[in-house]
Design a protein around this nucleic acid. Structure first.
Length: 368
DNA sequence: CATCCGTGGGA
DNA sequence: TTCCCAAGGAT
């Protein structure tokens, strides 16, 4: 227990300073003006791997459309995914809806507060359970996110990866001990706020840190080495071709499979280039394989670069005007995926991946 | 334990 | 431009 060893920083003093700092510097975020456990849960799921500035507008919109568990439970999958558009990790949205339904069915419509009940809900793991327990119910449970890991790795000058099991157990103990003399909800948010505003990944503002000399990394001059970075896989570059198929009024979109990358979202048809294949050849091949059609006269309108977590895609975008002499893909036929012809207005209401939203805006809604 | 799962912003 | 990475979870 290094934190109670002689010479280790005093947790009681640190917690007290942190709370005083938070009472002055806490941002006015929309989920901080409610005690509604559902609202807290929504904010925490949205905030998983997603920055506050991205979440705030989406959170406001979501709470306007799905103000309680019941409205979320009754919504269509399409509505839920559309409300999540642009946030990424789309399984979070459907898991949240499934959780809402389970809470209504098994917990009387009240967000549960016990470990086992919360962790049994889809999309709620150790972090989110602890965040809901501490922030919504003021229970002394740790919520250790990337911010808290960074803060504690520096505070204790941890020289092993933050994700190591030993460190995670240590962090949980530290946080719970800091909660003994403080509001668990405030302490959870204060630790994360410190990581977001002061104990920054690259240029930490140690001058403004309430921990001051209590921080071991700071006193030892190792702040820039903490937390120790985790090795990262090289990103892979991929090229793909997509088609804006149009009959003059409508465009053709297809729905992605219910599992895997960007599941259930609608997108323009196309696919990846094979080894040595040109973008145009790939487009024609994919449209024949997927839709059974042979396009001609397609015109390249541009390219879009889009970065995912472990790979980057260059999308070659083509406009193919079907003039009636070609056969059109038939959504009512035996295509592998659900599909349809949509006006631009209809398409805009469908949930789509960010890169496809760009294509829609750039070459369908505002063509040259 | 490693990998998959998105996106946008900052440096 | 490129790289990093953010209020993680599921498998």
């Amino acid at each position: 227990m290094p934190f109670s060893a002689p010479g280790a920083p005093s947790l009681g003093t640190a917690a007290q300073r942190l709370q005083e700092w938070f009472s002055v510097h806490a941002r006015d975020l929309p989920w901080r003006s409610t005690r509604d456990a559902y609202a807290i849960l929504v904010s925490e799921v949205m905030l998983q791997q997603t920055q506050v500035d991205t979440v705030v507008p989406a959170y406001r919109e979501w709470m306007g459309r799905f103000p309680d568990l019941g409205t979320l439970a009754e919504a269509s999958q399409e509505e839920v995914l559309k409300a999540w558009e642009g946030l990424g990790y789309y399984a979070r949205a459907l898991n949240l809806q499934r959780s809402a339904r389970l809470i209504l069915e098994h917990h009387g419509g009240r967000v549960p507060r016990e470990d086992e009940e919360l962790l049994a809900l889809p999309g709620i793991g150790r972090y989110t359970a602890g965040a809901v327990q501490s922030i919504a119910f003021d229970l002394p449970r740790a919520a250790v996110d990337g911010n808290v890991e960074r803060v504690l790795c520096r505070f204790l000058d941890i020289d092993t990866p933050a994700r190591d099991r030993r460190n995670q157990i240590l962090f949980g103990r530290i946080v719970r001990e800091m909660m003994e003399e403080n509001s668990p909800g405030d302490l959870t948010q204060a630790l994360m706020e410190l990581g977001a505003l002061v104990c920054l990944p690259r240029k930490p503002r140690c001058d403004g840190c309430p921990f001051g000399g209590l921080c071991l990394a700071r006193s030892r001059g190792t702040v820039s080495k903490r937390p120790v970075p985790r090795p990262r896989k090289p990103t892979q570059a991929i090229q793909a071709s997509v088609a804006i198929l149009t009959d003059g009024e409508r465009i053709f979109l297809q729905k992605r499979p219910p599992e895997g990358l960007m599941a259930n979202l609608w997108e323009f048809p196309g696919g990846k280039l094979e080894e040595g294949e040109t973008p145009r050849a790939a487009l024609r091949r994919e449209l024949f394989e997927e839709l059974g059609i042979k396009v001609r006269g397609e015109k390249k309108v541009g390219t879009i670069r889009h970065a995912y977590t472990s790979f980057s895609v260059t999308l070659h975008v083509y406009l193919a005007r079907m003039n009636g002499s070609e056969s059109l893909p038939d959504p009512s036929g035996n295509l592998a995926l659900p599909s349809g012809w949509f006006t631009p207005e209809e398409a805009r209401r469908l949930p789509m991946p960010a890169a496809n939203v760009k294509i829609l805006a750039r070459w369908v809604e505002e063509p040259d």
